[in-house]
């Protein structure tokens, strides 16, 4: 059926010209524009730190999608964030191998040390603490990642020292 019931035009945040150009380059690489959605969302998050609803609307507009369809993709991947994150993202792997080697204790210790729960950000905006499923470093369990870097074969003092060393 052909419909005339078009969703209302959303109010959207403006993405920078550079970001917009980078997204267009990604779109050009795919036969279907929406194939570039994941790549575009990564670019947006790298620049803005998170993809809040108004940003998701702006991305949806570029791709001609309903904003809810962007939400669907955002919520499927836990590496996307819809809320602002701390300057450093500390994620402790709590999958099987790491848990067997004390990852959950490690995470609890970091929670206590930072005074926040997993999923929260320190009041000074320095660290967001969280857990993560398997990061493929089972031979070096327990481990965590800070941003894109892995830190392996940790214990409580080592993990605390790592976190304390973050600027």
């Amino acid at each position: 059926m052909v419909s005339t019931l078009v969703a209302q035009a959303p109010e959207a945040t403006v993405l920078s010209d550079e970001l917009r150009a980078a997204i267009d380059r990604e779109i050009a690489r795919f036969p279907e524009p929406r194939g570039a959605l994941l790549a575009a969302l990564r670019l947006v998050q790298d620049e803005l730190g998170c993809i809040a609803p108004p940003t998701a609307r702006a991305v949806a507009e570029i791709f001609g999608l309903h904003p809810a369809e962007v939400l669907e993709v955002l919520s499927f991947y836990n590496l996307f964030h819809t809320e602002p994150q701390g300057r450093h993202e500390v994620r402790v792997c709590t999958n099987l191998a790491c848990s067997l080697r004390g990852a959950r204790t490690l995470l609890r210790e970091l929670e206590e040390h930072l005074g926040i729960r997993a999923g929260q950000t320190t009041p000074d905006g320095r660290v967001t603490l969280g857990h993560e499923e398997c990061l493929g470093a089972c031979g070096y369990a327990p481990m965590l990642r800070i941003g894109d870097r892995y830190h392996e074969e940790l214990d409580g003092p080592a993990a605390r020292a790592l976190v304390d060393g973050l600027p």
Partner: peptide, 27 residues
């Protein structure tokens, strides 16, 4: 919603056993 009125308000958010039907905030 996607195929008949073509308005697309409803989606499944999250995945696995956290999946749930929802709408975009404010829409």
């Amino acid at each position: 919603c996607r195929e008949v009125p073509e308005t697309g308000e409803l989606v499944v958010e999250n995945r696995g056993d956290r999946s749930r039907i929802t709408t975009f905030p404010g829409t």
